[in-house]
Design a protein around this nucleic acid. Structure first.
Lengths: 237, 237
DNA sequence: CTCTCTATTTTGGTCGGACCAAACATGATC
DNA sequence: GATCATGTTTGGTCCGACCAAAATAGAGAG
């Protein structure tokens, strides 16, 4: 439970005000924030406070502050939330258990998505899946390309839900797990097996069989985990 | 030197170092961070940079920095991640669609959890569910208490998964959705209906019927949504 | 000796000014 | 019109200072 603090920082009101301007589109996304010296004059505060406010906004994903560049206004969205988490999630993935826990949530969610897709996928959804599957098959010889089309295929499952939040979740999974996945050597035989798994999932969805779809997907992911799991031998806490 | 990013902030290395000390338990959780003036001397940097580093650590949930108080070291964990997100999620919940999207992810996950519980729940899990259900029934006359036991019942579903990340997810859901839920007037008739829904879920799990468990839970949540949904009339973007 | 209240020190929050280097804008040059 | 030298903005960092609140030490009361 998060406690509330009576005392407030001077930067808080500045943050609130700029936050409001972003939400109300007074500050348009992609547009640079006013110079720090302008802001300090406008709000009647020191540059210290202005810079702190900008930093907080940055930590909330409302502006993108690259060093030496003007902070760029960013529309609050699911991607911003993911980016913020990206700064702290690695601390949770330092152990094998941590990675497993995260991965298990993916299995849970994606299994449910496969089930849902089997029940609700429309004609265009099926077409998207089919296209992604074809691209996956075509890339079987090129492991890098296969990896990309692999992600794309799974992404369609998230897209079918029609929930933008879930799309961001998928991006989060791929981003955070990538460093661990990349330690797994890429073999063409594995590509073939993964493609077959994708095809099984697709077929199950096509047959409107949620149980089969979930089963195929879960097995697919669990299989991938056993591959990755073996790379966790050397470093143990 | 090795290829470093063209521009990096001076605070980055300080953040990395303190982050490392927290991870390696050189800085114990609950313990205050060294004074800023000590840190600036130790790292040979100005207080400006020290303060910036502390702020970044705070935004990553590694320290808890209440104004005017010494920053307190915090163990990186799922709860910290949730707290960080809590600062930006409200920006995503300003519209009805935003709330709906978040809630839909909950329905998806919790439906999958119910299904999973029906398949894998052990004796002690069943006992926990039963106890939570009994508490829920006993609190039917007191809406506030009912709300608490309601959350607790759902929490058991997350607990059964054995995944601490999911427990944090549940806390996130209840925290973020609470302000919207609290606008819904609390009626005893509704308590009775919700209790019945919980009982249906429990019975389905007891019967090892994943389809029924998922169905009961999804209907339960969707029903709750229709209640909450009606409170979104006044403010429309 | 413990507890309470007060005086002192510590420490975070804010300010102002200053300097540097990189980004930016300008304009001359080819 | 593209390129390059130029001067101007602007973010990053440092320094020193002051204030108020928090932490600590000390004095006094029970």
């Amino acid at each position: 439970m998060t406690g509330q603090n009576a005392a407030h920082r001077a930067s808080d009101q500045v943050v609130a005000e700029i936050e409001k301007r972003i939400r109300t589109r007074a500050l348009v996304e992609g547009q640079p924030l006013p110079p720090e010296r302008d802001l300090m004059e406008e709000f009647g505060i020191s540059r210290t406070v202005v810079r702190e406010a900008v930093r907080i906004l940055s930590s909330r994903g409302l502006v993108e502050a690259r060093p030496r560049f003007r902070p760029v206004v960013r529309k609050p969205g699911y991607d911003g939330a993911v980016d913020v988490l990206s700064g702290i999630v690695p601390n949770l993935l330092t152990t094998k258990d941590g990675v497993k826990n995260l991965f298990d949530t993916r299995v849970l969610i994606e299994g449910a998505l496969a089930r849902q897709a089997a029940l609700t996928a429309g004609k265009d959804d099926i077409a998207d899946l089919k296209a992604a599957l074809a691209a996956n098959e075509a890339a079987m010889e090129d492991s890098d390309e296969f990896y990309a089309t692999d992600k794309a295929f799974h992404n369609v499952l998230y897209k079918i839900s029609g929930n933008p939040a879930l799309l961001a979740v998928h991006r989060a999974y791929t981003t955070w797990l990538e460093p661990h996945w990349s330690r797994m050597p890429r073999l063409k035989e594995r590509n073939a097996r993964n493609y077959q798994a994708h095809k099984d999932i697709f077929d199950a969805i096509l047959m409107r069989d949620p149980d089969a779809a979930e089963k195929a997907l879960v097995e697919h992911l669990e299989n991938a985990w056993t591959q990755v799991s073996s790379t966790f031998d050397s470093s143990k806490t």
